[in-house]
Design a protein around this nucleic acid. Structure first.
Lengths: 190, 190
DNA sequence: AAATATAATTGAACATTGTTTAATATTAAT
DNA sequence: ATTAATATTAAACAATGTTCAATTATATTT
């Protein structure tokens, strides 16, 4: 068998990403296999390797889409007249909202070590992180301090979602992510 | 072949845990396979299944040991006359030290979703986390707030190490984990 | 238009995984 | 001494990522 040319290279790429994304949403990161993705788009695994170098590259592509989508939602939420504090709080809440709305995509993106690096991946991270830095900049005395504060905020958001997802520390009381975040931000924004 | 009885059940358990631990240290979490562990202890994979339910149970056992070891180091570091601030700072630094000294064991423990739960696992987490809560308690007005603060500290430590390990945000400047931690604690301990 | 080159697609295979199981050999109990 | 219980293994299974020769459709050249 050979060359159907039903789809262009770019179409195939998008088909695979969307199919893979849906598999992750429905069945979790562990269910993302080349055979499942291939079957979902009506091709065989071999074809995927003509478009992606390996499955890590496909995972990276799905993650890049998640990041751009999140970056877009951050841009949408931004209102020029807003105080820095309000903007930071809304960015943080948006992170929690993403985790709540798409826990499986969040896991694929943040809860699993990634073995694939690329400029696109790098750029997608910055499409998010630069906005966090921007929001914090007005409250800091130097760009270096602002960057550090942004990394601390980012780290804490990661950790809070991981903690909630693993459910490992819910003995006496659950402590909803929102409560932890509020508690953290009240001090962080002093 | 059958029944050599070179080792008791408990001896086999410990052999497997130590062999697995060393494989993770030397070659990383992904190198931890039943066949490698079995070969390292001079048995076959089937024998491991007579001792562990599956490989996730072995991973959990290795993690439990890591946690007890870390909990011990926290106990060792504790000095009765110390201020709360100093104790908290040293606990946090110990977390970073663990990550620095054993990055692979840290990854197995914290950077990968675990699919195996047990009372022992739960107890090991608390052997650590209860000490963090204890250290924070004197600075808080209620046990609930102390627990929340402990979770925030814990989350941030996680996040900082994850960030450093992934190396994804080291564009303009690396921002060593120690700097981020100091920056965080200076505000956290106010 | 014919011949040739290029590229896409597949099926089949390979190596590695985790895991199960029937067979077997050793120990323990009767 | 016979029987029962148990530990161990080899072999097999299913599922995974990945590679590749063979094949066929399109593009290019003559």
């Amino acid at each position: 068998m050979a060359r159907r040319k039903d789809h262009s290279r770019e179409e195939l790429t998008q088909l695979a990403i969307q199919a893979g994304r849906q598999i992750v949403i429905d069945q979790g990161p562990n269910a993302l296999t080349t055979r499942k993705v291939a079957q979902a788009i009506g091709y065989t695994p071999g074809t995927l390797y003509n478009v992606f170098k390996n499955i890590d590259a496909l995972i990276a592509a799905i993650n890049i889409e998640s990041m751009h989508s999140f970056a877009d939602s951050l841009r949408t939420l931004h209102q020029p007249g807003e105080t820095s504090e309000s903007r930071i709080r809304r960015i943080a809440q948006a992170y929690l909202d993403f985790h709540h709305a798409q826990p499986q995509l969040w896991s694929l993106l943040f809860a699993q070590p990634l073995n694939y690096n690329s400029d696109d991946y790098h750029a997608a991270i910055h499409a998010i992180f630069d906005q966090v830095c921007d929001a914090i900049m007005p409250l800091s005395s130097s760009p270096t301090l602002a960057r550090q504060k942004a990394k601390i905020l980012w780290s804490t958001l990661h950790g809070i979602c991981l903690l909630q997802q693993s459910g490992k520390l819910n003995v006496s009381e659950p402590d909803p992510a929102e409560d932890l975040l509020t508690h953290f931000l009240d001090q962080f924004l002093q």
